[in-house]
Design a protein around this nucleic acid. Structure first.
Lengths: 339, 339
DNA sequence: TATATTAATGCTCTAATTGAGCACTAACGG
DNA sequence: CCGTTAGTGCTCAATTAGAGCATTAATATA
């Protein structure tokens, strides 16, 4: 009986026949493939008739692929005719009951989420796929036009109900603090990076579609006329939330944005892209001061053609910074207040 | 042939018999369980006779566990008699050829790495397990006594060889930049968070044991008398590097350290713990100013017993901060220079 | 009672960074 | 020359970060 108590059981050979069988799972790879068009961040969506929006996903084939990422790249290329320079693993979700994809039988599926960036904004080749706007799925995350009405009008009251919905006093306090922190309802500021926490809170409060599908709508939950944002299949909206959060955070200390930009771009376009991702407006002069100081870009000498108004100068990313600075990101500050 | 080109293949039902079989893998959960003793960060190690050090790991059992983390907690409890408050997923490694654990046959194993924190520094109950010091595995990461000699004496020259070992000029330049950035060899500062990048660089340069085991020692690699740091089994040192990097980074904006501290502690103990993790010394006055300003701790009114010298006051973590501030970490600055 | 020892404070000073604002120049189409 | 859009220059206050010097506090023990 030593094996059972041993801290290092051999998990490859099967000591008891049939035991290893029980541990077998499949790995699903899901990708949030992001690009920008018309100052809107968008994500590649798979639409099939009569089904909810889904992220592209496919199985990991251990026989043919050396790494998870190469597996991902391979089937994304095959299926969407899209390629991407940048890919990053987000998280591995293994929750049962979180509406994963088991169709009742077959092995359990564990899903590994990825974030990928591309600048291929042109017409999509693959059938059934389309670009979906981020903020259709997360309307409360776009503050570029000021604080979304939705928050005070719908989310606030509904979450008040969620807080009150608990019988225990201590649990109510915990929920209260969580709501304040997530949505900055009190004196607390809005933290653009808490995308996932906010989504999870709304999920637990039963305010997003997925919660209903998973049968997780509690007694205390307030029913809305319409649920919040467009729902997605499985746990794909959770993966997208993770992707947005990661991109918003990492952009500040790594030059990821440039994987979303065309080879040359104006500084204003760059600023608009950053704003689109972070979901808020920035102070123009300060933004340019920053970009200049950090030496992230260099002039091309060319100019954008303009219908009217002064043509803007075109810049390109200085790839050399990768070997120069330590955290070559666009460390942006808080939201812009005035002009 | 629509199914083959479809962006959303059904990965649960098996369209062609035997195909789903091919996708089957096992999931191994590995944990870097960290604690502090005598100002040394340490990690739980499984030692079996005639085998390399390993992190505790076990299989994920999809039939009995709802989430990956609950699976992890369950077998860690069973096997090591240890529990932990904090656990966080690090990364999912699926590389073939990276000395994973396939014993030649059986399904491929994909390993999910976790970071867990505990304050159980007392004698370990479980057989075969022991605390291993971080910096035995990563001697170049501990700068508390100044820049480790090892870097100039051994690593620098060896990496110079690695850079020169490439035939292509552009590749040499890329390696050069990478070495400078990782080890701060030029004017660049040492970035304590790049633990994983540094390990990966040494791995590619063939300077750590694991590279030999994986048969990855290239032509250009310089052979050392002794390889760098204590080796570990499988890819466990890579997981530990990821854990250290994550802890060093996250500590700055989340109050993780307190999961390593006893219920009450002196401010100096807290500082020493932070220093132990980040691997460098801090300016005492500034550290206390920071902790005070942030309201992370509160006095208990009690004092530590001292053999000689003034007894230090004992503090405890203020749990309330979790609901108050947005990033309640110990945002520390750079390395201390003077006293 | 003095002294070594260890812990904790008080205070200063500079340099850099941030957030915001006002006002102005530049280049183009018509 | 006017509207329009893009880009500059400069200021200003508030805050933070990094470092250092000097001093007080509380204990054990010689």
């Amino acid at each position: 009986m030593r094996a059972a108590a041993s801290p290092q059981p051999d998990i490859t050979s099967s000591p008891n026949d049939g035991l290893a069988e029980a541990h077998v799972v499949e790995i699903g790879l899901s990708a949030a493939i992001v690009s920008i068009a018309n100052e809107q961040p968008q994500v590649l969506i798979v639409k099939r008739k009569r089904a909810l929006d889904a992220l592209p996903f496919g199985p990991f084939d251990p026989l043919h692929h050396r790494t998870l990422e190469s597996g991902l790249r391979s089937w994304v290329r095959d299926q969407t005719y899209l390629s991407f320079d940048y890919a990053e693993q987000l998280y591995t979700f293994g929750d049962r009951g979180r509406h994963m994809m088991q169709a009742g039988e077959g092995p359990r599926v564990v899903s590994v989420g990825y974030l990928a960036l591309t600048r291929a904004n042109d017409a999509l080749q693959a059938p059934d796929s389309a670009w979906g706007k981020w903020y259709d799925y997360f309307p409360w995350e776009d503050w570029r036009g000021g604080k979304p009405r939705l928050i005070e009008k719908v989310i606030g009251p509904a979450l008040k109900g969620f807080v009150a919905g608990s019988a225990e006093r201590s649990e109510r306090q915990r929920r209260e603090a969580r709501v304040r922190l997530c949505f900055g309802l009190g004196d607390l500021p809005w933290d653009e990076e808490r995308v996932l926490e906010r989504y999870e809170l709304l999920y637990e409060a039963g305010l997003v579609d997925e919660a209903l599908h998973d049968g997780r709508v509690q007694a205390g939950a307030v029913r809305l006329q319409a649920s919040l944002g467009t729902g997605m299949q499985f746990d794909h909206r959770r993966i997208l939330a993770t992707a947005i959060a990661r991109l918003r955070g990492k952009m500040k200390y790594r030059p990821l944005v440039f994987d979303l930009m065309p080879p040359s771009f104006t500084l204003l376009e760059l600023q608009r892209t950053v704003e689109a991702i972070s979901g808020n407006r920035l102070h123009k002069q300060n933004f340019r001061r920053l970009v200049a100081e950090q030496g992230l870009v260099e002039r091309t000498g060319k100019f954008a053609r303009s219908n009217r108004g002064r043509p803007a100068e075109l810049f390109r990313f200085r790839k050399e910074v990768l070997g120069e600075r330590h955290a070559p990101g666009l460390r942006l500050g808080t939201r812009r207040t005035g002009i």
